[in-house]
Amino acid sequence: MSDFYFLLLPVILLVAVVVIYNGIIGKFNAVDRAWASVLTQERQKNKIIPHVEKLVEEYKLHESSVLADVTRLRNSIDELGKQSSAAPDTVRLAEAERHTASLLQGLKVAVEAYPELKASDLYMKLMAEISEQQEQIGAALRIFNRNVEEFNNAIQMFPGSLVNSLLNHKQPVQSFTDAEAQDGFDYKPNL
């Protein structure tokens, strides 16, 4: 009987190692997928650009900064598409987010000069779409950060830390933080 347990123990250990190893791989891939989802949502902004251009054309907003903001946003979305490494490029994403905020600001300024624009159907739909896209990106980032937390826990907590150091060799992933928003706080957590 004791021989049976003696043989069973290594089998159980091997199964446990395989499960933990695969778990780490699975969680890493989930982080990768969640980041891809963030980028997909960011690229959805391409959808709004033709509508903004139509708005500029209809209401002759050529003298405003809206067109320049549109160009900058388009470029930053293109840059996101050229990302070469698999690691999340949070800097480029933050840049695209800044240009979105700038475009929104530009549209708000334009509305002040063109009151009829504010009441237009296209403007309202555009603002609803932009606001919804921002909501989607916020949600995608929260999902990404939750997956990052799960992955980091998996490789830093025992026994995952042991399996990772011996077999997986994965590095912790940084969760997404908005540097600009962080600058607004005096408090910085000592992480």
Partner: peptide, 13 residues
């Protein structure tokens, strides 16, 4: 594709 379209991040939340 139906599920992929419906389950956007905000819908998931």
């Amino acid at each position: 594709i139906v599920a992929a379209r419906f389950l956007s991040p905000a819908v998931i939340e």
